[in-house]
């Protein structure tokens, strides 16, 4: 028996939308601690890892130790787009039904003594669970900046080049690209905004390095403005994947690991 409820269906929709940028389907792993979703994109360049802890939900109940539900994200997203923003989202699953394996999605809107209800059932699919996990890493470099700023730069660069070069230095980040026709060059500096801390840029770069990333991945990560207006990027070097994370309340959030491009 699984049942979880959320008063902000928009946030869950944003999470699923972000995942569906790279992944068609993935296992939703429900445990007593909450929901975890993780998957590699088909090119094996980006790994998406989402945690929605039990306390992140308004109500959460999972009787099983671990429940693995294979979900088609595109279909789930279609369903979630049908939910009004002012509704209560409820996900449920009954595992005593041998015939049909489906995740029920319900939206309820209070109408005084009565409730308007819309119900959907998402047929589940079998997906082999990942047999590997992310190793423990000691991040030596970290940068925190407004998600909107990263989005703006990645969007601009995407107009010129499929590849962006990030040069992390102790006191600046240079983001650039070049094509046959043009070049673009952005400099981002540490900055404390005393009136609005969310505008600040903080960097702690112990070992400066340079890495190239595929622009459209960075652009899609930066679409998580609704999840957190701040993005944290953790790094070691050009050979180790970079981590982009967008945290939410109660230890929840979305994080991505992305493999860089090596210069010959």
């Amino acid at each position: 028996m699984l049942e979880c409820k959320l008063q902000e269906p928009k946030v869950f929709r944003s999470v699923v939308e972000a995942m569906s940028e790279h992944i068609k389907e993935c296992n939703f792993e429900f445990t007593r601690e909450g929901l975890k979703m993780q998957a590699l994109d088909s090119s094996h360049i980006a790994f998406t890892f989402v945690t929605l802890s039990a306390t992140w939900w308004n109500e959460y109940r999972c009787d099983d130790e671990a429940l693995l539900l294979g979900v088609n994200l595109e279909t789930l997203l279609k369903i979630l787009k049908c939910g009004p923003d002012n509704s209560l989202l409820a996900l449920s699953y009954e595992n005593d039904d041998d015939e049909v394996s489906e995740l029920k999605v319900k939206f309820e809107v209070d109408r005084g003594e009565k409730k308007d209800v819309a119900e959907f059932a998402l047929k589940l699919t079998h997906i082999d669970p990942m047999e590997e996990e992310v190793p423990e890493l000691t991040w030596t470099n970290e940068l925190e900046m407004p998600t909107q700023e990263l989005f703006r730069i990645a969007r601009d660069i995407s107009l010129f080049s499929e590849i962006m070069v990030l040069e992390f230095d102790k006191d600046k980040l240079r983001i650039s690209c070049s094509s046959k026709e043009s070049t673009a060059d952005y400099l981002v500096h540490p900055f404390e905004d005393s009136t609005n801390a969310s505008n600040s840029v903080r960097m702690n770069i112990e070992a400066p390095f340079k890495v190239s990333l595929t622009t459209h991945y960075v652009l899609s990560f930066a679409k998580n403005k609704n999840i957190n207006e701040r993005v944290v990027i953790k790094m070691i070097d050009a050979e180790t994947p970079l981590m982009f994370s967008f945290s939410m309340k109660e230890g929840s959030g979305i994080c991505y690991y992305i493999a860089g491009r090596l210069t010959d």
Binding site: L40, S43, H44, I45, A46, F47, M130, E131, E132, E133, V134, P135, I163, S212, T214, E239, T240, P241, Y257, A259, G260, R261, L262, T263, D264
Partner: peptide, 14 residues
């Protein structure tokens, strides 16, 4: 030119 790395060798067995 740069060469895209993948995450194939990044993960460790559970």
């Amino acid at each position: 030119m740069s060469k895209q790395q993948t995450l194939a060798s990044f993960f460790k067995p559970k």
